[in-house]
Simulated scan of single mutants.
Amino acid sequence: MTPLTLPAADNSSTFTPPGLESLHLPAILPWGADEGFTKQMLLVLLSVFFIAWFFIAASRKQQLVPGKLQFLGEQLYGFVRNSIGKDVIGGRDFMAFVPLLFALFFFLLLNNIYGAIPLFQLPTMSHVGGAYFLAGLVYVIWIGVGLKRFGIRYLKLAVVPSGVPWFIMPIVVPIEIISNFIVRPMTHSLRLFATMLAGHLVVALAGSGIAFLIAQENVLVKGISVLVLVFAIAMYMLEALIMVLQAYVFTLLTAIYIQGAVAADAH
């Protein structure tokens, strides 16, 4: 698709709004025509380092009366453990899955919030590969949990709801198969990817629009840039909120899927 071009201030060149290439930057260390070590990869590795460093530092000096860092670490851990793991999966089975939920939430939180941090300014989940990988990992885990607990019978429990009349089953079962095994992993990944990409692209477009308007000779047009700036700040704050919410939603859905697999015979 040809990018939209607008006349620049001096009418000698064109203004090209930001596109996907503005988010998916060239490889830092290329090793092929379209491959290499990218900024997304670097940020993912840094996120693992930052998360590990923080929680190791928070738990290093464990005290009965916690210091500020230990208190913050305990509160963050407790939020995932209790508000997501225990409340969703249930008090009997949740502890086995707390490490997964904990790692998912903070990994996504930091990789999303990169987009609101100056210099980093790139949510790594705006690249669909990361979202696909995490959703695929969760997909394998919750199916594996169901198979481990119920054996091959789990496949029947997952698609044959209890209490449904037999004559409706030919309609319900295909819907359940498509919903649970096809639509669920697709929406799990695309929800995360689409919100990260769209939000960051809107902010990038607003920033480029401000630069374009300021470069114009017309004073009125320059003044409009102030309104665009207000809009950009509002979108920036909204995007930051969505970054946190999407980390929570992805982890919450993971807990819901696992709970469904653990208690499949109760459905």
Rank of each mutant, 00 (worst) to 15 (best):
T38P: 15
V249C: 00
A52W: 09
L227A: 12
R60L: 08
F250V: 00
K156T: 13
I168Q: 13
L76D: 12
R191N: 14
A135D: 00
E21P: 11
K68H: 11
S22W: 04
R149A: 14
G73D: 02
L23C: 08
I113W: 02
A135R: 00
E74H: 03
N218C: 13
F54M: 09
V140S: 08
V128E: 13
V226P: 01
T124F: 03
P18W: 01
A204S: 15
Q259R: 15
Q121V: 12
K148E: 13
I171G: 04
V98N: 05
G19C: 07
L46G: 11
L25F: 06
F55G: 10
V172L: 10
G209F: 04
L109N: 02
G260T: 11
V219L: 11
Q62K: 05
L69A: 03
P7A: 07
E35Q: 13
I177D: 00
R81N: 10
S208H: 10
L229I: 14
A198I: 14
G209K: 06
I177M: 08
V249R: 01
W53T: 12
T187N: 09
Y114D: 13
K86N: 15
Y257H: 10
G90H: 06
H24Y: 10
A116S: 14
F102Y: 08
M235Y: 04
A58L: 04
V98C: 03
F50I: 15
V202G: 02
G260E: 07
F231G: 10
P7C: 07
I51F: 08
L147W: 05
L23E: 14
G115W: 01
D34Q: 10
L110V: 14
G146D: 04
F37K: 09
V202A: 07
F120D: 04
L43S: 06
D10C: 05
P118V: 09
V88K: 02
A158T: 06
G90P: 15
L197H: 09
L245Y: 05
D87R: 13
P170C: 05
L45Q: 02
E176L: 02
V128Y: 10
F150I: 09
F94N: 01
F97T: 00
T38Y: 13
A8M: 04
V160G: 03
L108T: 01
L101P: 01
M41G: 13
T14I: 04
Y77M: 07
A194P: 15
P174S: 01
A264T: 11
L192T: 11
F97S: 00
R153Y: 02
V44N: 02
G67H: 00
I233S: 07
H188Q: 11
V203F: 05
V88T: 15
F105I: 11
W142C: 06
A264P: 08
V228K: 03
G73R: 01
I117P: 05
A131C: 08
